[in-house]
Amino acid sequence: MQQYVAITKALADEGRGRAIMALADGELCLCQIVEVLGLSPSTVSKHMSILHQAGLVERRKDGRWHYYRLADREAPSVVRDAIRWTLKALEKEKIIVSDAETLCCVREKDRKEATECYSRN
């Protein structure tokens, strides 16, 4: 029951829902997520921490880079079901479609260019 409560709380925010959708096509660095969501790095970092604590995303660090991806097949079924439901429920939302267009450009940028978000915010 505890994980269910953590998941529902984590999904009860537009920014976190958008972050889940951005990760649908694979791993992203925190700066890429910042650029897609248009939020400050500290806000996105907090969102990603909440998603991670709920088990919805996995993270890894590579030097100074923090990468996130959706939880994999080894995650508990409640996590996998929540991710599937979120992806289906939000796929046609206007903001998600817009984010997907932005994400195409963001994925093409190199990490140095993407980290400019830290100096701007």
Rank of each mutant, 00 (worst) to 15 (best):
K109T: 08
Y118E: 00
V57M: 08
C31R: 02
H66R: 14
V106L: 09
T86M: 11
T115G: 00
R73I: 09
L70G: 04
R80N: 12
A54Q: 07
S49D: 05
W85A: 14
E27S: 14
S119H: 07
I7K: 05
K88P: 01
E27Y: 10
E35W: 03
K46E: 04
A82L: 02
D99N: 15
A114Y: 08
R16E: 03
A24N: 09
W65A: 13
E14F: 03
I96Q: 02
T43G: 00
V5R: 11
V97N: 11
R16H: 04
T43V: 07
A89P: 00
K94G: 06
R84H: 14
C117I: 04
A24V: 10
R111P: 01
S98E: 11
L37C: 03
A71I: 04
Y68E: 07
Q2S: 14
M48E: 03
T43E: 06
C117G: 02
R107P: 01
R69V: 11
V106D: 00
R16I: 01
A100H: 08
Q3M: 15
S45A: 12
V57P: 01
C104L: 13
K112Y: 12
G17L: 04
R111C: 07
S40F: 03
L39I: 00
H47Y: 10
D99R: 10
Q32I: 03
Y118S: 01
L28W: 01
V79P: 00
E113P: 00
A24F: 09
Y68G: 04
R64W: 12
A6P: 05
E101T: 12
E101P: 01
T86G: 03
V57I: 08
G26Y: 13
L51Y: 03
V97W: 09
Q32W: 02
K94W: 10
D81C: 05
L39D: 01
E116V: 02
P41D: 06
A71N: 08
A10D: 05
L28Q: 07
C29R: 11
C29F: 10
A114D: 04
S119C: 09
